[in-house]
Design a protein around this nucleic acid. Sequence first.
DNA 1: CAGAATCCGCGATGATACTG
DNA 2: CAGTATCATCGCGGATTCTG
Lengths: 144, 144
Amino acid sequence: MENPLQKRFAPAEIAEAEAFIDTNPEAPLDPRIERLVNDLIGRVADKWTLLVLELLEERGTLRFTRIAEQVEGISQKMLTQTLRQMERDGLVIRTVHPVVPPRVEYALTPLGNSLSAAFCGVWVWAERNLEAVEEARRRFDTRD
Amino acid sequence: MENPLQKRFAPAEIAEAEAFIDTNPEAPLDPRIERLVNDLIGRVADKWTLLVLELLEERGTLRFTRIAEQVEGISQKMLTQTLRQMERDGLVIRTVHPVVPPRVEYALTPLGNSLSAAFCGVWVWAERNLEAVEEARRRFDTRD
DNA sequence: CAGAATCCGCGATGATACTG
DNA sequence: CAGTATCATCGCGGATTCTG
């Protein structure tokens, strides 16, 4: 599989980092990669982003107000902000129809769809282990 | 080795996650527990939680100070808070050795390990699409 | 309808000092 | 060493208003 990191760093750098990892079991991943990937995850793992992602995955193309209705508890400000961020990261495509009143539609890009699929495992985990976590919390809260 | 993720996850996990991303468009979620699941995801998808989770997955059992050293940028307060939260959710086990000076060790529970595995797909996605996202952002930031 | 702009409270987080 | 306690701050995000 093609490694996207090879576009960012010189082969010598990657080789050095990998050799370092191979020979140092205690060593962390390359801090640069770690930080980049983690920043990315930090953005996409946002609460509202996950909800919008999930909604668009289910419903396909939606207008601004439809999303606002379906994502319970989100404010207009945060929805705008979330959609802009997702658009900026290439997760969502925003289509403005030049009509009155304005009609703006949002849909996931292929990148957004793949992210949704990637998070599917986490959703499945959460659903599957919800009760286990709740029980753990009850035990923790009533510990001696 | 061409992929640093292989140091972090078993080959079988990566293959499974990749196959999942490639073939699974969506997984329906029971709307009744949507909120509960989302609260849970909101807690475990926290930035520091993800970093600690990955670190403990890599290294196994670690002391408080070891974790603080490895998780770049985390304050002692947030580390304590994160570990308590994870312990409360049953993701980590905290072991106090009655010695002087104190020795407290943290390790993932089976639940924590399964969560780490669930997030494997997201890490794979992030690394695989890091460059695509960066390019999307550049295009967005330089749009007319 | 789809936002932009503004104000503002408060919770999250950092920094520092202290302790068993 | 592994925290707890306290104080200060800073920005997230809600509420509201305005507009093309």
